[in-house]
Write a protein that binds this DNA or RNA. Sequence first.
DNA 1: AACCTATATGCACATAATTGCATAATAAAA
DNA 2: TTTTATTATGCAATTATGTGCATATAGGTT
Lengths: 179, 179
Amino acid sequence: MALAEAILVCLTDRPMSGYDLAKTFDASIGFFWRASHQQVYRELARLRDKDLVESREIEQSGRPNRIIHTITKAGEDVVHAWSLKPCRMPSVKDELLVKLYALDNVDIPVLHEQLDIRLDQHRAKLTAYLRIKEKFYDGKKLTRAQKGKLIALTMGISNEREMVGALGKAITMLGEINE
Amino acid sequence: MALAEAILVCLTDRPMSGYDLAKTFDASIGFFWRASHQQVYRELARLRDKDLVESREIEQSGRPNRIIHTITKAGEDVVHAWSLKPCRMPSVKDELLVKLYALDNVDIPVLHEQLDIRLDQHRAKLTAYLRIKEKFYDGKKLTRAQKGKLIALTMGISNEREMVGALGKAITMLGEINE
DNA sequence: AACCTATATGCACATAATTGCATAATAAAA
DNA sequence: TTTTATTATGCAATTATGTGCATATAGGTT
């Protein structure tokens, strides 16, 4: 249910359209909570029904009107209440690890490729995170809100770096099996 | 959809009851793909409908009869076909990181506690994984299937170790904000 | 005596997520 | 000239996941 809260959190920063939010979920906050644009629009409708956001339409010509969503007082209260509730452990669901676990029932050269692909994906993420850190955080005077985002980003970086290392090791171990 | 495949993979090892599978999902394969016993029973019914497993009942007295599920040839084919399909990136959804991201809208002492709790959870996981590695893999002669499980476990260990380190660092960074 | 754990199965309801579809205009690139 | 990307919204159907409930017995603990 924390998609609602993630959206509300974004709106505490500034009022946004569904489109803006969807983009935000493809970048910044999406590093920690992934959601598609369809999910965002659906959740926005629910938030509006519960009066946690207020929506007003901005006329545009040539394309659909923008609908700008603003968090309400009730919405802010929901965010605060959520911040007090314990966090769940993110549920582990990784097909790649299941395939390693099931090594005897799996095509090993294909698995090798899949590990390489995953390694590239984590390398790409790491590069993206490092670029953001350098561009927006390094050597800058930061507000408290920015410091929070930096802590989250730092965890992301550490995570991706570890995955790159661990996948490299896994690929080596897998290679040694066939010798 | 890989719950179906995860179950089938377990059944390639040996025929099992739903209860056995549920226990397996609380331990070994559950480290990489989490599922509750309700999910397992429901998925087993679906696998039976598709003739990917064969189920036979074993009479017992005093408690419900055991239903032993055996993977069929069609089931093995499904596992093999699955092994050739590309793996998805596990979808990131971590409330704790969202709370850090939203630092300005969050109760900081409570967040501090939540980070401590998460740190303990990862420490506990790390300890459990290390114990399993020591007990079942270290200094033993391993089959290929076991080597696969060891690679997956090694990645799990590396992951947990990194999380413990990163959370420690995050807690320090959070502490420095309030100074 | 009351409670907890293990064994063993599963339904029903609710919430969440994915996938495909649908619309509609502009501007730039191939 | 056709295709693709960008802006902008959203529904419908399906699949997946989570939560609570329900049953039933044996054996050990407080």
